[in-house]
Design a protein around this nucleic acid. Structure first.
Lengths: 212, 212
DNA sequence: TACTGATTTAGTACCAGGTTATAATAGCTG
DNA sequence: CAGCTATTATAACCTGGTACTAAATCAGTA
């Protein structure tokens, strides 16, 4: 039984499936939270096809994907129940103070000078200022910042944030952040952070917020 | 109907449940990957009790926990774009003005609210402010910024930078940046940018911070 | 034309890890 | 004893799948 014949012909019109596979991979990579059912809508094929595709491409099911992501992050996370932060939080006292560490890598510097781009240093400080606020929603309102000296490739930035006032205005908090490399202060910022002040914003998304 | 009488009595022997709650919280915090069934083994109570406990303590089920963790990590993994200018420069007149465009994507927002993280909006403005300075080295010295309204997923931010002063101080330039979504101003910042001003700042041997 | 084989769709049974609701039981306590 | 809480049991249902079988569709080719 001469089984082969597909190989001999260049198989020009075998594209549709390949294309779909590419699209599928891309879609899932872009949004790992997508279900097969949602994918059927996007790719216009049956759910079985989606599943066969995932099987062929060795893409695990939604739950496995989320579990893998959770595991990966769990390893590197020091059990903060928190928001997203640039830099590693090494200490955090909500509504009081916080410390994060951020090492300047290649991708953070101007390649020609090895000097860190300002917004990375800012991002560390900003996300720490947001993280230290103990509230459901915290957004930066204003910031007054000073880059005291430039930070270079390989340096470790230690940012220390202090919540200065929660008084009076309930919906705003003032946070001071100082970033050091060693003993030396390299950045200083005064942030005003909007906070939800105990209000509950329900997006119908993930949480089940109400439940009583 | 006075619902409370537990309060009146010191409730000395109400401990077992409280204790279990404490243990439960701790166990789940230590290992968020644990299932209810495994918890029954550890706490020696029925699975219903575990679930009632989680209900009371507002601890979501395993899958929700993993999803939350995955979301947190997914957000932070995609921190800041690593390269050069953030946003697309659509117009640039060195030492005068510049315009860049930056679309807020999934990776720029808090997943729960769809609101962009401040440092991305800042990053666009900052990198534009640096780009507009016609010098070998340009670094942010200070910035005074205001987030006028929050920017949301899908919105296109148009940042316009104007170089306000090169006078007097040769080594500093003042740059104003306004960021708009449509007609609406969403961010405003005053940047002071250090520039090499013909002088040669020897940083790691190479010059020119940016551009191209 | 009929056969072959890949692809796609459909349908069923089953699973984990739950939620929701309802009821029964145990244990104390006034 | 009634009345209460806490616990356990039972059953129906849900999501987002896996595993398997089978049928339908299309393309090529002998």
């Amino acid at each position: 039984m001469h089984d082969y014949k597909v190989k001999e012909v260049p198989a020009i019109e075998r594209l549709p499936k390949r294309q779909r596979h590419q699209q599928l991979s891309k879609l899932i990579e872009e949004n790992p939270f997508i279900t097969d059912r949602e994918l059927t809508r996007l790719l216009k094929v049956s759910i079985q096809t989606i599943r066969l595709d995932r099987l062929e491409l060795a893409i695990p099911e939604l739950r496995e994907r989320l579990k893998l992501m959770a595991e990966r992050s769990y390893d590197s996370v020091r059990s903060l129940p928190l928001h997203e932060v640039i830099g590693d939080i090494v200490d955090l006292q909500l509504d009081r103070s916080g410390i994060s560490m951020f090492e300047i890598m290649h991708e953070h510097v101007f390649s020609r000078t090895g000097i860190a781009r300002g917004h990375h240093v800012f991002a560390q400080a900003n996300s720490l200022a947001v993280a230290v606020i103990d509230d459901e929603i915290a957004l930066t309102a204003t910031a007054d910042i000073r880059f005291i000296r430039s930070v270079k490739l390989g340096e470790k930035c230690i940012a220390k944030a202090y919540v200065r006032s929660i008084s009076g205005e309930k919906s705003k908090a003032k946070v001071e952040v100082f970033t050091y490399v060693g003993e030396e202060m390299v950045f200083q910022g005064n942030f005003v952070i909007y906070r939800s002040a105990g209000e509950h914003i329900d997006e119908g998304g993930i949480e089940r917020a109400d439940r009583h």
